[in-house]
Design a protein around this nucleic acid. Structure first.
Lengths: 345, 345
DNA sequence: ACTATATCCGTTAACGCACACGGAACGGAG
DNA sequence: CTCCGTTCCGTGTGCGTTAACGGATATAGT
């Protein structure tokens, strides 16, 4: 019963035409003060809510959303956001949304610049991106702002007020959580290591914050445990394995190693005999999952990259199509994955 | 460029009218074989996707979704699903969705029956419910099935094939996870307790499965740890606290207590001096959160009741309005909450 | 040859909203 | 008085889809 009120009914009650009602709804003027007030009053009483389907049909808009991500292979980190984007694409197609994917080579800044230029050339209405190449991304985002193209950042939580939203995990808290997991019920006097295997070029902001959080956990809570040292090493270092092994041997009473990015599988490669310490890492790459399952890795913190990307696209559409503002910052839960939980991913 | 193809264009290409194309799309017959094939071919080539807004406008349907939940106070478990329902209500109002909430008294089966009858009387198109009163719910769901009213269950994962979907956590795996958390790095020979404080009447299925999972973890993995005993006790037992205390004292080498429902705050009440064992519980009630923050509770497993309800409503709408079938079973991640993570909830 | 019936298809009026266009009423300037 | 501008408002068309309705043609039955 009591179907939803429409513009027509409001017009009838106010003794005006639907054109007038429409004008006050979009307050585009040319309506006398009294009728404006009257119409607004009636709308409130009837709790009028415009019919989204009718509105969008009348506006008959099409949206082009660009997704700017690094190239990748299957099983790698970025394939999860990619899956999400594809899913969102089929889900939103019937709403007039077209998603275009732009992939760049992480190690080639020019390819980033080229792709970001294409995004503008091809007149996209909004952008979803991950801030991997920090400086280049900044320039890109500035350009977006200048052209008033809304964008959403995934993979990190920033106070970027010109972004429509940033979606990610709190890296600092993630580091603290890692501290908690790694020190939990360890003997007094145990020491811990941070091993940061980098992909050369990028001094990842998330990683920095994770390390800060990790350290802060120990200085706050844990007078009996110590973060002895941290090793920063390039993935392409020819002596990578050997250097890691040395570091492990040198460390006395080693209780655990924190790998603040997705490279914990490389650390495991360096292990020779039985693992005698705990390993806490990040991200459910295929390789990491296998090692978690073999108990070579103890905890993985999942950033939920699929959800990040899917929600990002969804927010962009809701902004463009339904004028709904997303939260400035979306903080996904820190998802601790253990061997027991693994089968659900 | 290349706007989305419409029925009209397809009709023109096939030299027929839009009526014919429409008949093919909804295969409601009265079209010759050849033209059917031709039209289908053209639709495939153009990758035609019907415009959801136009479709829903033409159909001009309104949906009434009923939500059937127990009464509750603020800060209690059910206030989270309730918040989600209210949010979904405002989000979906403009799509012609009306959500009606039916609350019953958990301890009064008649109130459940009364409310469920109202749901049918008031001609709702779909139902979201939590299976708290098991038998009564079964009858209700059977009636739904008979009247072909789709329903979604939240709070438990069932193989209820007549449900449109069931959304929840895998309780068995939750129990195993609890086992992992509670035994992690404990000394050999440590013993564990299960304390199940019940709300009298309902022999909760989830709780049973959690306990089974908990036990199975120890029989599978943990030859040095033992689940000594389990105490099942009514919340209304006048000697509740005393009985719990006795059980705790009796247990030698107690390493931890597993509370397989949201009542861990009651267990904490029974503690007199410093807590010397680990506590793993469920659900982020206000009381539990405070105790987690004070380190009286070590881990809480969050069932994500808000997300369960929101997704449930969303799935129902997408089914009714967009003919999208949800997954039969939606398993939300086991969300481990520690003191560090607490600030995000 | 004529009607009855089946088969196939086109026309059309909604659905609720957005927006362009034009028009009525009025006042003031010439 | 006419002419013009301003203020306020109604009308009409179109967005893409649905589905009722009825029209045209062919086929069968008498």
């Amino acid at each position: 019963m009591s179907k939803k009120p429409t513009i027509k009914e409001i017009a009838k009650l106010a003794n005006v035409s639907i054109g007038t009602v429409d004008r006050v709804i979009h307050n585009r003027g040319d309506v006398s003060k009294e009728t404006t007030i009257l119409i607004k009053k009636i709308m409130n009483e009837l709790k009028y809510v415009p019919n989204t389907h009718a509105r969008n049909l009348a506006l008959n808009r099409n949206f082009k959303i660009a997704v700017l991500l690094p190239e990748h292979k299957n099983g790698e980190y970025w394939s999860e956001p990619m899956r999400a984007v594809q899913q969102a694409n089929t889900d939103l197609k019937s709403f007039g949304v077209e998603i275009k994917i732009y992939l760049y080579n992480q190690k080639n800044k020019n390819s980033f610049i080229k792709e970001s230029r294409r995004i503008f050339d091809e007149k996209n209405d909004a952008v979803l991106l991950a801030q991997v190449l920090i400086e280049e991304s900044k320039i890109f985002m500035d350009t977006c702002k200048r052209k008033s193209i809304p964008y959403i950042l995934i993979g990190s939580i920033k106070n970027d007020i010109s972004a429509l939203s940033t979606i990610g995990q709190n890296s600092y808290q993630g580091g603290r959580l890692a501290g908690e997991l790694i020190s939990f019920n360890q003997k007094k006097g145990t020491n811990f290591l941070i091993i940061h295997i980098t992909k050369a070029q990028n001094p990842n902001l998330n990683v920095k914050e994770r390390i800060m959080g990790f350290n802060s956990f120990f200085s706050d809570n844990n007078e009996f445990h110590y973060v002895i040292d941290s090793l920063i090493i390039s993935e392409e270092d020819p002596d990578l394995i050997k250097k890691i092994q040395n570091k492990l041997i040198q460390t006395e009473k080693l209780g655990g190693v924190f790998v603040p990015n997705s490279k914990s599988h490389i650390l495991v490669k360096a292990l020779e005999s039985k693992k005698l310490f705990r390993i806490v890492g990040y991200d459910l790459l295929d390789k990491n999952k296998q090692l978690l399952n073999k108990k070579k890795i103890d905890f993985l913190i999942n950033q939920r990259p699929y959800e990040q990307a899917y929600e990002g696209i969804d927010y962009l559409y809701k902004y463009l199509g339904l004028q709904q503002l997303p939260p400035q910052i979306v903080s996904l839960p820190l998802d601790i994955v253990t061997k027991e939980k693994l089968m659900y991913y």
